[in-house]
Each structure stands twice: as C-alpha cells, then as structure tokens.
Design a protein around this nucleic acid. Structure first.
Length: 476
RNA sequence: CGGGGCGUAGCGCAGCCCGGUUAGCGCACCUGGCUUGGGACCAGGGGGUCGGCGGUUCAAAUCCGCCCGCCCCGACCA
C-alpha cells in the first residue's frame, strides 16, 4: 500500500477520493458513473440498513419490493414528476431482441410504480394508512458523479405511505424526518439542521419537501435525507381512492422519504482526518482491532492467547478483530487500521502479557492508555461510547462555529467563498431572489429551519420585509 | 455539454522536447532468510498490445493525424 493521503487542507476533494479508495470503501467500475461498493464499504451500509430498518419497522412500516422498470406512461401521469425526472432517466427500448411496444424507464424513484399498485390495494379507510418501505437501487443519469455522493446507480430506502387525511400525512412526513435526524445524530454522529425546502429545491411532484442538512469539513452542506409531503398529487394521477367512514370517495394523502448510500460519504467527510477514516462505533464494521506484538514463537503464542481471551471477554458487546497477519509489522498495522477508521485499537505485547494489561488507543484522539486486563471490557465499552459522543460533539461544534447570522450581501458572498459557512440570513420568499443569490454566490437555501423564532428583517438580496432567517450554503 | 489535465507492469511515475542497446524506477506481488512496541531489512523472482487505429521513417513509447477512455473544475441532482 502506498503511503500518503492528500491532506484536507491541500485539496479536500482529493482527500475524499483518496480515503474512499484507500480505505477500500469503493472503487470505480468499468461502467462510467457507476461505482463498486467494496466489502468494507458495504459492511458500513449493512450496519446503516440494519439500524435504520429497525427504526422504520418500529414506526409501523413493512418492507416490500417493486419492479426496477417503470412503464413510460406511468412516469408521465404526474406532470411535475416527469418534468423533474425524465431527463435523467435510463430508458429500455428493447427486450428479447425486439423493440418494446412501450419504453421502460429504469426507476429514478418508485412513486409511480408503487402508487399504481396502491390504487389496486386501497379500497376502504380500513386499508389506511398504508405504510410500505423498500430497499432498492435506483438510477439517475447525472452529468458529474462522485463516489457515494452522486453516482449513476445508488442504493437507498424509499418509504411510501398513504393516509386518509392531510393532517395524518403531514404528521407522518415529519415523523420520518425526525427518525432520520435521530439516526444521523445518534448513529452517524452527524448533527443536522432540519427544516423545509424552498419551492425551488423541493421534490418533483411534492407539496412540500422536508430535509436534514449537515455540514462537511470543507463547510459545504450535504443533504442527508428528505421527507416529502405529496398531498394528493399522485393520488389524483394514479387514482388512489378510498371510501371513507361516511361513505364518500376520497383521494389518499401521501408521503415519501428516503436516504441513500450517500450517508457513507457523509460519514467520511464529517469525521475523517488526514490519517484516514474515522468511523462512529455504531456503524463501524470493526469496533475494536487487536494488534498483537511479539518477538518470537514463544511470545507469539502467549500474546495471541491473551488476544483471544480479550475477544471472547468482549463477546457480542462489540465487534472485535484480531489482526494476526504475519507479513506486517505492528507499526504498519497501526497505520492501516487508522486509515480504515476503526474506532478503538488494542495493543497486546509481551510486556502487557507480563503485567496482565492491554494498551488502548482511541482513533479520534490517538492517546495511548494502559488498562488492566481485568478492567479491559468495561473500559473498551466506555471508550467506544465516548468516541461516539465525542465525534458528534466535535462535529457539532465545528458546524455551530461556522453557522453565522449574516445581513449584508457583500459579507455573505465573501464568507461563502472563504472560509465557507452556513449563513443564517433573511429571505423575502421570492424564487427570483433565491436564484439571484445562487447565481452570485453559488449558495442555495438548504432549508427554512424548524424552531427558528420569527424575527423581522430584510431580505439579503432585495431588502424587502422578511420574518425569518433561512440557511444558505454551498452544497454538494 | 464547456474548460483543464492525464493515458507506459496491479498502483504511482520517469523516459517523449532532441526517434536508435534488452523500456526503467518506487510501492505492491511470489520464494527463502531474518524481523515485529509507529509504515523493517537482505537475497532471488514473476509481471508490459508503452490507450487504440493509421501515417512518416532503415528504425516510433518518442514525430504527425484521427479516435477512445479516465480524472478534475462548471451547468443538473439523493
């Protein structure tokens, strides 16, 4: 393995690519714009899936699977939707050597194919709410791709629900956004701003789009997840109706929400350092790596025996890996596991065997700590916990320190350029002002945040009355 | 699609300007030895359509033309 990763300060984009490739999360594929998720990266995704899937199911949803192909006519049924997605779709025109009667679109998202089925399945208010989630791949023919952040094909989950009332659908939309926020903060250790998107940024076909937005270490924003209040737009397009208790025929109110493999990119850019990845313990494929150190066959046997005892003692409380590769020196392994972002390293050498102790080193802080073997398990779990919390706190402080109230456009533009910020600024609500700000500063409205107090002010661009601040940033 | 850069061993590169031994170096890989508390060392070894096609020439990685691919920067986006 080659030494040296581009530093974040030197070139953040290059650093990101170096980490993803060198930590063996993903690799470029023979297909342009597509990536191969390698075993170590996929293990992170599996952890994300497992932990998020539990939350989705606990909230009452069931998993199902719908087809990859969508008839062209389905996509065309909702005007905004087709306008938003059709240009970036892959289209199948031939099958079995023959031209198809109707083109099939490879799903860019599954609203249309799913709601065509909902129309069959929903008859009565008793069938509601319908709460279905799907784990799937989708394809969007993006111009420029970046590993995990934007690839032609990506993996995600998409939840799609149907409700009897607007209120219930709205409640569901916000509930799922809340689950995403809790997941991002407690599992990925990434603090997020939650709020609503401006009309310009909302999902094609939605009434409203809610979002969680995080700050990466280059101070750019990354949208981690969205939850859409679809209203009755799709219900009307797909004729999804139910008979109410009162006997009337009503269109359902719908929601959809999703997060993708982009979350892995977020973890890299939120926590990593110049040595490599730093994984939050809750999603790390390996929580603790034991590096044995020995001089000869005799010490080797003793050290490995103690390593195995430690692994067994920890049991299911954390995932432990013993790195007993013989062709590498301990120093090489230290660097390798730091690159891979394993949150906690345990060193065991002849001295430690002698004194019945182990050496523990947190990945994020790098300080060595000697612990008696008798106290090892408790301390390991404590340190994993502290790492999980520490990563969140560090990330939150960075974000908060770089989130500023800005009321002057010149200052706004200057700070967007360098060092880059989340600007809390007033906005009059007009799409023209929003577009002009983007044009002049490359910053977009990430969200109109929840929980911000009403406050009189003047639009950052036009100076007209505004009654709240919104968050502007440059984004991925 | 516009701008920039790059294609030589698995990876990173030198050689090209100024054509001429057997195409070279570092890392990785294989064998053996010796080592292991922050990226060890020694010896031996395997691996190449020099991105592709065509042209110039006695002779092309090197000069010329066309094509292809990839990466980075913009417009579009989870």
């Amino acid at each position: 393995m080659e030494k040296g990763i581009t530093s974040r300060a030197e070139d953040f984009s290059q650093w990101y690519n170096d980490i993803v490739m060198r930590a063996e999360l993903a690799d470029y594929s023979p297909v342009k714009g597509c990536m191969v998720i390698r075993p170590y990266g996929y293990a992170i995704w599996e952890n994300i899936q497992r932990l998020l899937d539990k939350r989705i199911k606990d909230a009452g949803h069931q998993n199902a699977y719908f087809p990859l192909f969508i008839p062209e006519s389905f996509l065309r049924k909702e005007a905004d939707h087709v306008e938003g997605f059709a240009p970036e779709c892959a289209v199948v025109t031939h099958g079995g050597g023959k031209k198809l009667e109707e083109n099939l679109y490879v799903r860019p998202t599954s609203e249309t194919i799913m709601y065509a089925m909902y129309a069959k399945w929903i008859r009565s208010w008793r069938d509601l709410p319908m709460l279905i989630n799907q784990w799937a791949n989708v394809v969007r023919w993006e111009m420029r791709t970046r590993l995990f952040l934007r690839t032609t094909e990506f993996l995600w989950q998409e939840g799609h629900t149907a409700h009897a009332t607007a209120e219930e659908a709205e409640e569901e939309t916000l509930k799922m956004l809340g689950i995403y926020k809790e997941f991002a903060e407690n599992v990925l250790a990434i603090p997020v701003y939650d709020g609503v998107k401006s009309d310009a940024e909302k999902f094609a076909g939605a009434l409203r789009t809610y979002t969680i937005e995080a700050m990466m270490q280059d101070r750019k924003a990354l949208q981690l997840g969205t939850s859409h209040s679809l209203g009755q737009n799709f219900a009307k397009a797909f004729d999804v109706k139910f008979q109410s208790k009162e006997g009337t025929l009503e269109y359902v109110w719908q929601t959809s929400w999703g997060v993708s493999t982009r979350l892995i990119g977020a973890v890299v850019m939120a926590h990593g350092d110049d040595k490599g990845l730093i994984l939050p313990p809750r999603v790390a494929p390996i929580g603790v790596v034991i590096v044995p150190i020995f001089k000869d066959e005799a010490s080797r046997a003793k050290v490995l025996a103690v390593a195995k005892q430690c692994k067994e003692a920890i049991g299911d409380a954390a995932t432990v890996h013993i790195d007993d590769r013989e062709q590498y020196t301990p120093g090489w392994k230290f660097n390798d596991w730091e690159l891979k972002g394993v949150p906690l390293r345990m060193e065991i050498g002849p001295r430690d065997v002698e004194k019945q102790q182990v050496v523990l080193v947190r990945r994020d802080e790098g300080k060595k700590e000697i612990v008696a073997q008798s106290a090892m398990k408790g301390r390991v779990l404590e340190l994993l916990d502290e790492t999980q919390r520490g990563l969140f706190e560090r990330c939150k402080k960075f974000r908060d320190d770089n989130t500023l109230d800005v009321d002057d456009l010149r200052e706004f533009a200057a700070k967007m350029e360098s060092p880059g910020i989340f600007a809390r600024s007033h906005w009059c609500g007009s799409a023209d002002c929003e577009a002009a700000v983007k044009d002049q500063t490359k910053a977009t409205i990430r969200c109109i945040p929840f929980g911000s107090n009403e406050e009189k002010g003047k639009c950052i661009l036009c100076g007209k009355e505004s009654n709240r601040r919104v968050i502007f940033a440059r984004s991925y």
